[in-house]
Amino acid sequence: MILACPHCHGLNRVPDTRLSDAPSCGRCKSPLFTGAPMELTAENFDAHAVKSELPLVVDFWAAWCGPCQSFAPVFSAAAEEIEPGFRFGKLDTESQQALAARFGIRSIPTLMVIKGGKILGQQAGAMPKQAFIQWLKQFS
């Protein structure tokens, strides 16, 4: 499986059977899985959404959004619980307006699962942790 590093965004080849063995990046030597969402930007988005073979769960959010703020701990807890099955990333729609426009984001929070550049699923609005994890299981 091809994985993008959450630190340097370099691509790494990791056998599927070794995903849970705490693999490290071949370029920067940092862990490929941190158990925490990473910040997505125009510079690193395609490495994770298009080139990486791991499904990317994106939380489109903004700092001024109350529901986004209340969902943030749920998103982080889910990342800690079910990574390495998915890569988790947060995309600030205020600072990354071109990416938000590319995906037609009209309300936040919007959750999206992307793999190989294709949208596998999309959900508008926050949800409880168990409902969120249940929603994600259909994409694993």
Rank of each mutant, 00 (worst) to 15 (best):
M127N: 08
I133Q: 12
H48R: 10
L91I: 06
F71N: 05
A98G: 00
G104C: 06
I114S: 06
G35N: 04
P67A: 11
D21K: 11
G10A: 15
R87W: 02
F103Q: 10
L136W: 01
M1D: 01
S76I: 08
C5E: 11
E53W: 10
V113G: 04
A4M: 05
T17W: 07
G35T: 03
P31F: 02
F103K: 12
V74P: 07
V14S: 07
K29N: 09
P109N: 11
K137V: 04
F132T: 01
C5V: 09
I82S: 06
L136H: 03
V50D: 01
W135E: 07
A63Y: 00
Q134V: 05
N12M: 04
L19H: 03
D59K: 07
L120D: 04
Q134E: 15
E43Q: 15
Q138L: 07
L111E: 02
I82T: 10
Q138N: 11
L32S: 07
W61V: 03
A98Y: 00
A62W: 00
S20I: 10
V57H: 03
A131D: 14
A131T: 13
L32A: 08
K118R: 14
F132S: 00
R18M: 09
P37V: 11
R13I: 10
A22T: 09
E80H: 15
K90W: 01
K51M: 04
P73G: 07
G116H: 08
I2A: 06
G26P: 09
Q138E: 12
M1V: 11
L136E: 00
K115G: 01
H7A: 12
P128D: 15
G117C: 05
V58N: 02
N44Q: 09
P128N: 13
A131K: 13
I119E: 14
I108Y: 12
N12A: 09
Q134P: 00
K90G: 01
D92Q: 10
G66V: 12
A62F: 01
G35A: 04
I108R: 10
Q123E: 13
L32M: 06
M127Q: 14
S140G: 07
D16P: 11
G89S: 12
P84V: 03
A36V: 14
L54Y: 03
K137L: 10
A49P: 01
Q138S: 14
H7C: 07
M112S: 05
A126G: 10
V57K: 06
A42P: 05
P84H: 10
F60V: 05
S30A: 15
C68T: 02
F88Q: 04
E81F: 02
R87Y: 01
A47T: 06
W135G: 00
V58H: 01
R27C: 01
L111Y: 03
Q138H: 10
D92G: 06
P84E: 02
F86G: 00
T110L: 09
A100E: 02
P23L: 01
W61F: 15
Q130F: 06
L54H: 02
G117M: 04
R18N: 05
Q130K: 14
P23V: 02
A77R: 13
E80W: 06
G26W: 02
Q97R: 14
N44T: 07
K90V: 00
S70M: 12
S140T: 13
K129C: 05
S70Q: 11
T41L: 08
D21N: 13
A36L: 15
T41N: 08
L32I: 05
I119A: 11
A49H: 00
A79R: 03
L136A: 03
L56R: 06
